[in-house]
């Protein structure tokens, strides 16, 4: 009951932060614009900055939101899936795996699409799923996940995938920009096409995650107990693994690897609102989107007019947090 009320307070706060992030994303940038320019554009039909506001900044802000929401939802799912609040798509190796798949597709020069899906997304999904399946099998002992095994296997597999990615990129002439994009993440290439790629995947995943949220509550009780409470564990696990991989893979294929973004937000939301996954999935998505919008603002402004890869910002915030969590467990 108390937690529900906290949710009612939390929601307007998030909406306020979202509005703030959106406003800042629109006015801050290489071309100096201010509140007046935005007002003129919105209310007085002044089209001077239309391209900058709509095609550059709004699309980028939306992409940041969607990528952040996807990574955060993916992290919330993985944390429940592994019954471990330290999991996130980067830590368990999915992001690096997906990145390898996307780069492999680029390397092979395949630009075709199957049934409207760009093959690059399919490659990213396939190799992300491959990595997380390996991590899952290696870190499972008698149906229990050992935290250390999970984290180490995930991080090592991710490092291996990143090495392979770097190797492929090294053979290309534009290797530096490509490597920065794929390994450190960036939203600098944001446009409406990318927004339209990620949006349907994200909405589909959020709906399905909400649909299965009660099952996730049972799943974190352990497989035996979940089954005895009526949860079809095997099918639910398969669905969640595919969902979290899908979210991470699509995020990676539009923005490269943005590490640790899916770690902090679900964790914070759980502390504030409790571990019930119905609330957790929704609020993690919302808060994760806002979090990444602010990270992208930082990435754009810290070394302005140059841009930092956004993965540097998220790692600078997320990695210390990860270490803190690891030490608090003992």
């Amino acid at each position: 009951m108390k937690l529900k009320n906290r949710g009612k307070l939390f929601f307007p706060l998030l909406l306020f932060l979202l509005a703030t992030a959106l406003y800042l994303s629109l006015v801050v940038g290489a071309v100096p614009t201010g509140r007046r320019d935005l007002c003129n554009f919105l209310f007085h039909g002044d089209h001077t900055f239309q391209t900058i506001f709509i095609d550059l900044r709004l699309s980028r802000a939306l992409l940041a939101f969607l990528v952040g929401a996807s990574l955060s939802l993916s992290g919330a799912i993985l944390q429940g899936y592994f019954q471990n609040p330290m999991a996130d798509p980067f830590v368990v190796g999915v992001s690096s795996g997906a990145s390898f798949g996307a780069v492999l597709c680029l390397f092979l020069g395949i630009e075709a699409s199957v049934l409207g899906l760009p093959l690059q997304n399919l490659f990213a999904f396939g190799s992300g799923l491959g990595i997380v399946s390996i991590v899952y099998l290696l870190s499972r002992r008698k149906f229990i996940f050992k935290v250390e095994t999970l984290l180490l296997t995930g991080i090592a597999s991710g490092a291996l995938a990143s090495a392979l990615t770097s190797f492929l990129l090294f053979t290309r002439s534009d290797s530096f920009e490509q490597a920065v994009f794929w390994l450190l993440g960036s939203l600098a290439l944001a446009d409406w096409r990318q927004v339209s790629i990620i949006l349907p995947y994200f909405l589909f995943s959020l709906l399905l995650a909400q649909w299965l949220a009660k099952d996730m509550n049972l799943l974190v009780m352990g497989d035996d107990v979940a089954q005895s409470l009526g949860c079809p564990v095997r099918r639910v696990r398969q669905a969640f693994l595919c969902l979290s991989t899908l979210l991470a893979a699509v995020s990676v294929s539009v923005s490269g690897i943005i590490g640790f973004a899916g770690l902090i937000v679900p964790h914070g939301v759980r502390i504030l609102l409790g571990p019930d996954h119905k609330r957790l999935f929704f609020f993690s998505s919302l808060a994760g989107g806002i979090f990444l919008m602010f990270c992208d603002l930082l990435a754009r402004t810290v070394l302005s007019p140059a841009e930092l890869p956004i993965g540097i910002i998220t790692a600078a915030v997320g990695a210390p947090f990860f270490i803190y969590l690891l030490h608090r467990r003992r």
């Binding site: 009951m1 937690l3 429940g80 019954q83 471990n84 609040p85 509550n217 049972l218 974190v220 009780m221 352990g222 035996d224 107990v225 089954q227 005895s228 409470l229 009526g230 949860c231 079809p232 564990v233 759980r270 409790g274 571990p275 019930d276």
Partner: peptide
């Protein structure tokens, strides 16, 4: 599993605290 869970309820041995649910949330399960 759903049918079985309407016939048999199980009280496991011990409880691992991965996530800290409230008593009400646990019983709701």
């Amino acid at each position: 599993r759903r049918k079985v869970a309407r016939m048999i309820a199980f009280v496991p041995q011990g409880y691992d605290l991965a996530f800290d649910y409230t008593v009400w949330e646990i019983v709701a399960m």
